[in-house]
Simulated scan of single mutants.
Amino acid sequence: MPARNPGIDLDLEWVSKVRVNQQAVLRRAQQIQARKQGKKQWQAAWLLKAVTCIDLTTLAGDDTPSNVHRLCMKAMQPIRHDLLENMDMHDKGITTAAVCVYPARVADAVKSLKAANSSISVASVATGFPAGQTALKTRLEEVRMAVEDGAREIDIVINRSLALTGQWQALYQEIHQFREACGEAHMKTILAVGELGTFTNVYKASVVAMMAGSDFIKTSTGKESVNATYPVAVVMVRAIRDYFLRTGHKVGFKPAGGIRTSKDSLVWLTLMKEELGDEWLCPALFRLGASTLLADIERQIYHYVTGRYAAPYELPLA
């Protein structure tokens, strides 16, 4: 696990000078999407890598202790055991990176994983997810309560109005307070890129979040009309690279929202490898926020092992 990002003092000069070349970003995103993907055993290996980087998520209004328990069991055994055995990967400890739930369900997830003697992290959204429009005091208390209940990772959401009106000092201070409220829990900062308007705003929000001590920056809540897209990701990972080159601190990246297919996950892994390098291809620095992605990956693994696609009743429900 890399050292946590301690953050730095707000550098408004850096923020004010940011200009993003939109055409260059779009061109780079197209290049990454056009890359040929590996086949057969190479594709299977990359898909297993993707599984280990998933934050398996349920953020539904009808979440109950029982479906959170089922989610935790799926996180512990994400791919059917006999399929892993066929690939000689059954004893490699393949699990998802974390399970992600609402604050009210953190205790349920912790209880299920503890009973199964699992070290999988519990992540919780907080700070008025998804809109971030509740009072600051309430948002801070929500973080503290999730941590007290056992969450080891907190996905906070920024107040978009501060970014849209250029109040970078106020945004920095808010995120810094969230970081303090997280204590030992790692903090992922959701930028809600679909509501930030421009690539330049996305870059500025990214660097301000990292300066304030974010351990990860995350694209979306999954509730916006536009969520994780490759052009926005290029902007965010370039900000991560610039921050690393300036400070020596590594910050993770988490795309979320609309990532549903195995092919999607391979493109995201390609983007990380090309833009940030192999060091970022690990759960400590890369996560995929998803609720339905795992089912498609397991379906592709089944095809690799058996040579045919599974019928709906042949794979466990996620």
Score class of each variant (00 low, 15 high):
121 S>I: 09
119 S>Y: 03
115 A>L: 10
118 S>V: 02
146 A>D: 11
116 A>V: 00
113 L>M: 07
109 A>S: 08
101 V>N: 02
143 V>P: 07
149 D>P: 08
127 T>G: 03
133 Q>M: 12
103 P>Y: 10
125 V>N: 14
117 N>M: 01
115 A>S: 13
109 A>V: 03
102 Y>C: 07
131 A>M: 14
127 T>P: 00
113 L>F: 10
138 T>A: 12
127 T>K: 00
131 A>E: 15
108 D>W: 12
128 G>R: 07
147 V>G: 01
121 S>G: 05
103 P>W: 11
126 A>G: 03
103 P>F: 13
108 D>L: 07
101 V>A: 03
105 R>H: 15
150 G>H: 09
130 P>I: 11
143 V>S: 05
123 A>E: 03
104 A>H: 07
146 A>C: 06
108 D>F: 06
134 T>H: 05
130 P>S: 15
139 R>S: 06
138 T>H: 08
121 S>Y: 07
146 A>N: 08
132 G>N: 01
111 K>F: 09
138 T>P: 00
150 G>L: 12
148 E>M: 11
111 K>V: 04
140 L>C: 09
148 E>H: 10
124 S>Y: 13
106 V>G: 05
106 V>F: 06
111 K>G: 00
135 A>V: 04
139 R>G: 02
123 A>I: 00
119 S>M: 05
125 V>D: 14
145 M>T: 10
109 A>H: 06
104 A>S: 13
122 V>E: 05
115 A>F: 04
129 F>G: 05
124 S>R: 13
142 E>N: 09
106 V>Y: 03
144 R>I: 02
108 D>Q: 10
128 G>N: 08
136 L>K: 09
122 V>G: 03
145 M>D: 12
148 E>L: 13
103 P>K: 13
125 V>T: 12
114 K>N: 14
126 A>D: 01
105 R>T: 10
137 K>M: 11
130 P>N: 05
107 A>Y: 07
147 V>N: 04
117 N>S: 12
144 R>H: 00
148 E>A: 15
120 I>R: 02
110 V>N: 04
128 G>F: 08
136 L>V: 11
140 L>H: 03
128 G>D: 10
